[in-house]
Design a protein around this nucleic acid. Structure first.
Lengths: 97, 97
DNA sequence: CAGGATCCCGCGGGATACTG
DNA sequence: CAGTATCCCGCGGGATCCTG
């Protein structure tokens, strides 16, 4: 994927942001309630420390989550992703349950 | 990512399905109108033949798109993804325009 | 407990050339 | 035009050990 292309298309940007299996799951968790590193680790059973660290850092840089005293919470921008998650959940319920 | 884990969670399934930057863009295109291979290739400027072929095949297997005489169209199951795309688009408009 | 640092492997995916 | 076939490289990400 070439990040410099499609730069005008907002969907491509979002698609790129969500283009790994973990990101949405992390956001969903933090959307529900503030979470510690270990909380996320045990919630996302099979994720490795390294990957979780990187995804978290990326989401912090994007301004989607933020950290306060070892707790991760959702930002305003991050909570906007809720509608996407909801529609994904609805779709998943219907076709992948 | 371990596909065998999180198998009960519908969101994880959808997240996994959409876990590359291209899939959503391909679906969006075909959602708008039936497209030929070359149409997709020129729409998604920087995609390679190989990748496009693989993504298409995967989406056919999932039952999200189907091919008829060199034209790709969306299925019932595939059109259900429209709400996800719409919310992604809305979010993108707001934060990544 | 919350990460950082290293090592290493697999495969996603680009480039290119070829075929029906 | 619509793919298929190879070749090959990068990096995403797991495992493991270390540190504040």
């Amino acid at each position: 994927m070439n990040k410099s292309k499609h730069s005008k298309c907002p969907i491509a940007k979002v698609a790129l942001l969500l283009s790994d299996p973990w990101t949405m799951l992390i956001i969903r968790d933090i959307l529900n309630k503030k979470m510690r590193f270990g909380d996320l680790e045990s919630s996302l059973e099979s994720i490795s420390t390294r990957t979780l660290t990187k995804k978290i850092k990326q989401l912090e840089l994007e301004g989607i989550i933020e950290k306060t005293e070892h707790y991760y919470t959702i930002t305003k921008k991050g909570s906007g992703l809720n509608t996407i998650i909801k529609s994904m959940s609805k779709y998943g319920q219907k076709y992948y349950k």
